[in-house]
């Protein structure tokens, strides 16, 4: 393997000082003699320095406030997106159900009332006929009548 390839294979390890002293010495000698490897090594070191600089990047001022505002607005949007479902589908459905229930209740109560009314009328007629047949005085049967009006 050529010396240039050797350096290029171990560039990271060489720069980070992870190679054996003998190997480092060997590569040092090659770099001092090879302009191309010297150039590549210089560029590589510059890129690593840039990496160091990028590492120390800090969030911009008020990033925390912006994130909190963003979270709040997005959660509020999600909340709103739930409401239309209630407004468009659930709310009319609930109102319709309520109206139908009220109508049904009115119908059943009305039917029951009509039945009771006709039953009382029949009772009164029967009492009236018995009273006239037996000539019972009116004051004795007054309490038996149920007034339906």
């Amino acid at each position: 393997m050529k010396h240039c390839e050797l350096l290029q294979k171990d560039l990271f390890a060489y720069v980070e000082n992870e190679l054996s002293p003998v190997r480092i010495q060997h590569l040092d000698q090659h770099i001092s003699e090879c302009a191309e490897c010297n150039r590549i090594l210089a560029e590589f070191r510059s890129v690593l320095t840039l990496m160091e600089e990028q590492r120390s990047v800090e969030p911009r001022p008020f990033a925390e406030t912006r994130i909190l505002q963003g979270i709040e607005s997005r959660l509020a949007k999600r909340q709103k997106s739930v409401n239309p479902l209630f407004a468009r589908i659930l709310q009319p459905a609930l109102i319709s159900f309520g109206v139908a229930a009220a109508l049904a209740l009115g119908f059943f109560l009305g039917t029951g009332f009509a039945d009771t009314h006709s039953q009382y009328s029949q009772n009164n007629e029967m009492i009236e006929s018995v009273r006239s047949d037996l000539n019972v005085p009116e004051f004795m049967t007054d309490d038996l009548f149920i007034f339906t009006e």
């Binding site: 912006r66 994130i67 963003g70 979270i71 959660l75």
Partner: peptide, 9 residues
């Protein structure tokens, strides 16, 4: 920052 919002949510 956008990703940070997504992460927090």
């Amino acid at each position: 920052e956008d990703i940070a919002q997504d992460v927090c949510i």
